[in-house]
Structures are given as structure tokens and as C-alpha cells.
């Protein structure tokens, strides 16, 4: 089953890559046919990616959410899912052109990690693992989409209304609202992640909050997006400022995910 997963993972990487190229051609050639094929390939990759994760789960005999490889491929899956939902919901294929490279980078990072299936240490053998990590995947995916939307907003801000960007991206006001919805989804799921993590930590380690670097940086990320929401209300920080904030916020998400494990080892390192 793990061999199947390995093969599927390679195929998924290739399809994401082809989809990314087609999204780029869509923007370069300004032909919608390419965007349609890219979206279908994106969907196909997501289906196969789901199958790969299922195979990994069956092969490992547990949820495939416990090490850097598994979380990275799941993170890419989450971003792929959320971006596809936003593309479909808001009829917005340009989003795919910006989400696809991020997905490809994350899945590329996954490919560099060890795929070895290790037995879980007792602390990780908990039903809370599924809730905690799956909510983190959705949260990170949503923040990834808000990051991509922020970049699109900033680019669109420099383009004329009648240009390709003006024609193929939603109005700035709507773009800003979509980004806000993505941040809202991310923040809600990050809250789920932190709370489920706290419940699990209490059962596993006897302390629901111990200022472990990952906990601390999840809190920092949460606070940053909370500041974003408050600034929108207090100072009317919409549009360009909000888009810039969404981009910076995602840098913090990436640090929480990769930076903390690399530079600040703690309970979440599992080395």
C-alpha cells in the first residue's frame, strides 16, 4: 500500500506541476481554455492526492498526520482543497495560478522529507491527533489562500481595470472580502487547532499549555490575524493594507510550521 502511495505521490506532483504550467500559460496567453484544463487537472491532482493520503493511512495503520513528510503533504492537500473551493465558489481561476506554485513548493518540501513509516510514540497515540492536525491543515490552507489573494490584490492594484487582470480577477472590493473570508476560515480553524491541541496536551503531558515553541508560535500567528481583524474595523484597513498584512501573516504561518521545528525544537519536534 505504501508503494502505491509512493507512486501516487509522484503522479500527483507531476499533475500539480502540469496544472501550474497551464495556469501560467492561461495568464501569459490570456486564453481561458488553458484555465479550464488547469482547473480540471488541479481537481484530478486533488483526487489522487486524497487517494495517496488514504493509501498512506492504510499502509501505516493510522492517520497520516504525524511527521514532517505527512504534515507537509497534508498541508499541500489542504491548500489545494481550499484554493479549489475558492476558485469554484468565486469563479476565479487566476487564484489557481498563484496557489499552484505554493502547493508545488510545499509538496516539493514534502518530497525532501523522509517517507519512512515509524511507529508512534505513546503520546501520539490519541484520537485528538486527528482533530488537532486536520484542523491545522485546513487553517494553514486557508491562510495560504489569503496569502495568494493578498498577492493578487497587490498586483491587481497596479493594473488597469480594462487589462487582463481587471477582466479575470474580481473587483478589488470583492477580492478584499474573499481574502477576509479566507483569513476568517483560517483563524477559526487555527482556534480549533489550538484548543484541540490543548485538550490533547492535558491528557498526554498533564499540562494543557506549557509555552512549547510550537504552541507559542501558534498563539503568535493567532494574535497576528486577530490584529488584522481589529485593524480592519478600527482603521478601515481594507484593500492594500489588508492584503499586505495577509502576506506577512502567512510568513508567520510558515515559520510556525517549518521554522519552529528547525530552529526551536520542543515537544512538537518528534525527532
Amino acid at each position: 500500500m505504501l508503494q502505491v502511495e509512493n507512486t501516487l505521490f509522484t503522479i500527483v506532483m507531476i499533475i500539480y506541476f502540469v496544472s501550474m504550467i497551464l495556469y501560467f500559460i492561461f495568464i501569459a496567453a490570456k486564453k481561458e481554455t488553458f484555465s479550464k484544463i488547469a482547473v480540471y487537472l488541479h481537481l484530478g491532482a486533488l483526487v489522487l492526492h486524497t487517494a495517496a493520503l488514504v493509501c498512506r493511512g492504510i499502509g501505516a495503520g493510522r492517520l497520516p498526520l504525524t511527521n514532517q513528510y505527512e504534515f507537509a503533504t497534508s498541508f499541500a492537500w489542504g491548500l489545494s482543497l481550499v484554493s479549489l473551493i475558492f476558485i469554484w465558489k468565486f469563479k476565479f481561476p487566476v487564484l489557481g495560478a498563484f496557489a499552484a506554485p505554493v502547493i508545488f513548493l510545499i509538496i516539493g518540501y514534502a518530497a525532501m522529507q523522509s517517507k519512512e513509516v515509524k511507529e508512534l510514540m505513546p503520546a501520539l497515540r490519541s484520537n485528538w491527533l486527528g482533530f488537532h492536525v486536520s484542523t491545522a491543515i485546513i487553517s494553514y490552507g486557508a491562510f495560504g489562500v489569503s496569502f495568494v489573494l493578498g498577492i493578487i490584490f497587490l498586483l491587481r492594484d497596479r493594473m488597469k481595470e480594462e487589462s487582463f487582470w481587471g477582466q479575470h480577477t474580481p473587483a478589488k472590493e470583492k477580492l478584499d472580502m474573499i481574502s477576509y473570508r479566507a483569513v476568517a476560515l483560517g483563524l477559526l480553524f487555527l482556534t480549533f487547532t489550538i484548543i484541540t491541541g490543548a485538550i490533547w496536551a492535558e491528557r498526554a503531558w498533564g499540562s494543557y499549555w506549557s509555552w512549547d515553541p510550537k504552541e507559542t508560535w501558534s498563539l503568535v500567528t493567532w494574535i497576528i490575524y486577530a490584529i488584522y481583524l481589529h485593524l480592519r474595523i478600527r482603521r478601515g484597513w481594507e484593500g492594500k493594507a489588508a492584503a499586505t498584512f495577509a502576506v506577512i501573516g502567512f510568513v508567520c504561518v510558515i515559520f510556525t510550521y517549518i521554522g519552529v521545528n528547525t530552529f526551536l525544537p520542543g515537544l512538537h519536534s518528534y525527532k
Binding site: 509555552w211 507559542t216 508560535w217 498563539l219 526551536l264
Partner: peptide, 17 residues
């Protein structure tokens, strides 16, 4: 509230290093 949140985020981030 915004000022406190910024200080809190900075304090947590700094302390983690």
C-alpha cells in the same frame, strides 16, 4: 487592544528564542 496584541505577539515571539 491592538497595541496590547502587538506587544503580546512580540513578547511571545521574542521569548521563544
Amino acid at each position: 487592544a491592538i497595541a496590547l496584541l502587538i506587544i503580546l505577539a512580540a513578547a511571545c515571539a521574542g521569548a521563544s528564542f
